[in-house]
């Protein structure tokens, strides 16, 4: 009797858990056309397939992209402000067995090693569904350094203004 009760409890638990389990799956991959060794300024593109594997429709789907830097000593989340204008995708409903495909273009702003992940939630789903990770490395590129430009860009007009004032006083 005790064993039967126990098995029944297990069955009920599994049944309720599967009823609440998130039916979404998110598959993230780098687009094949991406540069093999990207550098600052290059564009990368990622592709996701968000699939509803459950028996019921998923309402209010939201998926968004996240980027973190994983260099040793520089671990931090990255603000995507300059990296990407396409930060999220929404769908009012995803029917059972259907999928939502999305491209995530990205402009590489800073050198470093990064990890990208796309997460999805639905209106009634209890859990967040993350994709697999995709890592990539951005090479440094020689670009304009602000600490050299600012003194020249500000200093030379000031010097010329000074010369004009000096000249005006003399005349």
């Amino acid at each position: 009797m005790t064993l039967r009760t126990f098995l029944l409890s297990i069955a009920l638990f599994v049944a309720s858990a599967s009823a609440w389990a998130e039916p979404l799956s998110v598959n993230l991959s780098a687009t094949p056309g991406n540069p093999a060794s990207p550098q600052m300024g290059d564009h990368l593109n990622f592709h996701t397939i968000i699939r509803n594997d459950g028996p019921t429709p998923v309402d209010g789907l939201i998926a968004w992209i996240s980027l973190v830097q994983i260099d040793k000593g520089k671990e931090q989340p990255v603000d995507l402000e300059d990296w990407s204008a396409h930060k999220a995708v929404t769908a009012p409903q995803l029917a059972p067995g259907t999928s939502l495909e999305t491209d995530w273009p990205m402009r590489l702003i800073q050198a470093g090693t990064y990890r990208v992940v796309v997460s999805a939630v639905s209106r009634n789903g209890p859990n967040l569904t993350p994709s697999t990770f995709v890592d990539f490395k951005v090479r440094q590129k020689p670009v304009v350094e602000s600490q050299r430009v600012l003194p020249v860009a500000v200093g030379i007009p000031i010097v010329l203004c000074g010369l004009m004032l000096w000249r005006r006083r003399r005349s």
């Binding site: 300059d82 702003i109 670009v143 304009v144 602000s146």
Partner: peptide, 16 residues
């Protein structure tokens, strides 16, 4: 022009 290069993200990524 110089300030645009350092103030604009798109331009700041131009190669030297």
């Amino acid at each position: 022009f110089g300030l645009l290069l350092v103030g604009n993200t798109e331009l700041s990524l131009l190669d030297n």
